[in-house]
Amino acid sequence: MSSRGQWFADITLARSLRYALLGQCAIAAAVLATDLLGQWPTGGASRRDLPQGPVSPGDQWREYDPATVSPSYVRRDPAPGVETPANMPSRLNFSVMETENLGSLLLVTGQISEGDAEQFQTYLDSMDEVPAGVALNSPGGVVQEALALGRAIRRMEMETAVLPGTICLSSCPYLLAGGIARRVSSAASVGMHQHYYNTPGYLPAFLAVEEIQHGQGRTMEYLIEMGVDPGVMVHSLNTPPEEIYVLLDQELSDTRLATEILD
């Protein structure tokens, strides 16, 4: 890396670490509080009322439901060739689709579960000809698995895309980051929120907080490795798990999570 590139990376990382500090403090306070109460937050926790429909600047928080195939904030129906399941699969499904502008793509649909990175590689190895790109339609899932999938995509030098009417939420943007080129339709939805890093519930609070911080550090390192501004994590750190922060086209471009916005 050139001295100028290293300087830029150092500045970006320093800024991102400052962004992350407040989020880590909030998470630490939550873990300590729940440890004192003797329980972790459950899905039954009360939720604030959030608007419906497409987002606009400053109005980007929506309810998050990983089982929802077509959330209300997605701006149009899926692109031709995208097979939308009646229910979001509990793990990733793979199929090949043809597009008019991007050619043959590997369509990846479903929640990201343990073992999906290995299945992804097995699927690619079984193909006579591997498509140049991956189209994503996922509400996210296991973070460590998403990072492994993203690295597999980069290792294969594949491009990534989020097509019109589809979603890439929670940990799915880490798959998007793996592409050597990253194209996102302005009629798609890419969103982030706080993640769980598989911290055992029996850990003392201070150890759980430490493991969460290690998880965040690994994620930031991954984004830097992929050429994405880790400052994008400020949106995940500031958004509770039951909500999703939907990124605007300008935010996707500014953080380099998208290298091209498609009409």
Score class of each variant (00 low, 15 high):
Leu36Phe: 06
Gln39Thr: 14
Trp40Pro: 01
Pro41Val: 04
Thr42Lys: 09
Thr42Glu: 10
Gly43Asp: 09
Gly43Ala: 07
Gly43Arg: 09
Gly44Tyr: 13
Gly44Lys: 14
Gly44Trp: 10
Ser46Asp: 08
Arg47Ala: 14
Arg48Ile: 13
Arg48His: 10
Asp49Lys: 09
Leu50Cys: 05
Pro51Thr: 04
Gln52Thr: 15
Gly53Val: 06
Gly53Met: 10
Ser56His: 13
Arg62Val: 04
Arg62Cys: 07
Arg62Thr: 07
Tyr64Phe: 15
Asp65Arg: 13
Thr68Tyr: 00
Val69Leu: 01
Ser70Gly: 00
Ser72His: 13
Tyr73Cys: 02
Arg76Gly: 12
Pro78Glu: 04
Pro78Ser: 03
Pro78Val: 00
Ala79Trp: 13
Pro80Met: 08
Gly81Glu: 04
Val82Cys: 08
Glu83His: 14
Thr84Ser: 15
Thr84Ala: 15
Pro85Gly: 03
Pro85Val: 07
Ala86Gly: 11
Ala86Lys: 12
Asn87Ala: 15
Pro89Asp: 04
Pro89Gly: 06
Pro89Ile: 07
Ser90Ile: 06
Arg91Ala: 12
Phe94Arg: 03
Phe94Lys: 07
Phe94Ile: 06
Phe94Val: 00
Val96Tyr: 00
Val96Glu: 14
Met97Cys: 05
Glu98Asp: 15
Thr99Gly: 10
Asn101Pro: 00
Leu102Lys: 08
Gly103Pro: 05
Thr109Asn: 01
Gly110Cys: 09
Gln111Trp: 02
Ile112Gln: 05
Asp116Arg: 02
Asp116Met: 02
Asp116Leu: 04
Ala117Arg: 03
Glu118Ile: 12
Gln119Phe: 03
Gln119Pro: 00
Phe120Met: 03
Gln121Arg: 14
Gln121Asp: 13
Thr122Leu: 11
Tyr123Gly: 01
Leu124Lys: 06
Asp125His: 13
Ser126Glu: 09
Met127Gln: 15
Met127Glu: 08
Glu129Leu: 13
Glu129Pro: 00
Val130His: 02
Pro131Ser: 07
Ala132Thr: 12
Gly133Lys: 02
Gly133Leu: 04
Val134Ile: 15
Val134Trp: 01
Ala135Pro: 04
Leu136Glu: 02
Gly141Asp: 03
Gly141Met: 06
Val142Tyr: 04
Gln144Lys: 14
Gln144Trp: 08
Leu147Glu: 06
